[in-house]
Amino acid sequence: MLLIKCPFCGPRPELEFSYGGQAHIARPKDPASLDDESWAEYLYIRSNPKGLHAERWRHIHGCARFFNVQRNTASDAIVATYKIGEEPPKPVDPGLEEWSSRSGAAL
C-alpha cells in the first residue's frame, strides 16, 4: 500500500485516496472551437510511461482535495506531490528518484 504525501495532510495510506488519471490535461477553454481530432486527443489520449508519470490523486477520505503526484510507474516511488495549480517540479534527476522515494517513506 502506497504512502502518499497529501500536500495538505501529510503522508497518508493509499486507502484514503482515489486515483484520478493523468495530470496536467486542462479542459479546453472553448471546446466548440476544437476539431474532432483535437477533442478526441483531449478526451482519450493518455501517456502510459514506464517511469515517471504525472498523475492526479484525490485525498477522498481525508481533506477531499485533488492534487498532483509524480510517481515512477515501474518502482512506485513517489517523487513529488503538489497542489492543483502549482507548477510541477523540475524534471527529476534519475539519481534523485531513489532518494525521494526513501525520504517519502520517512515522512
Binding site: R12, L15, E16, H61, G62, C63, A64
Partner: peptide, 8 residues
C-alpha cells in the same frame, strides 16, 4: 489530542 481527520 486535538487532532481530527476524515479517514477509513
Amino acid at each position: 489530542v486535538g487532532m481530527c481527520t476524515r479517514t477509513i
